[in-house]
């Protein structure tokens, strides 16, 4: 599956990674080689094989519905780039 310049730009946009055209060209080359290595998978017949999401066949454990957390806003917001009145600030979002 050949990769194109627009694929890289599209992935970069979806992943919110700022790339200029030069960088995109550079990554296109790398990603192309990685994908061609990955394409070896297509040679393998996997019909009827169930996908394996986790290495152990374990199931989800459930947590009791209890409030165990206290207000730690003070500490958590110490590493925040911009806060005011307890809110995280971002450039204005237009709905």
């Amino acid at each position: 599956m050949a990769l194109e310049h627009t694929d890289v730009l599209r992935a970069a946009h979806l992943a919110r990674l700022g790339l200029n055209d030069d960088e995109a060209r550079h990554y296109l080359e790398d990603l192309g080689r990685i994908l061609s290595m990955v394409d070896d998978l297509q040679a393998l017949d996997t019909r009827g094989v169930a996908p394996l999401a986790h290495p152990l066949d374990a199931t989800q454990r459930l947590r009791a519905d209890e409030v165990t957390e206290t207000d730690r806003r003070e500490q958590f917001q110490r590493c925040a780039p911009a806060v005011e009145n307890g809110l995280y600030l971002v450039p204005r979002v237009v709905e």
């Binding site: 519905d65 209890e66 165990t68 957390e69 730690r72 806003r73 958590f76």
Partner: peptide, 23 residues
């Protein structure tokens, strides 16, 4: 529920901003 779907923070309505947002 009393607590959130994936954490032990309270779901009570109307608390001070981000005071019920745990790690």
């Amino acid at each position: 529920t009393r607590s959130k779907i994936f954490s032990g923070a309270s779901t009570a309505f109307g608390a001070a901003p981000n005071s019920q947002a745990c790690a």
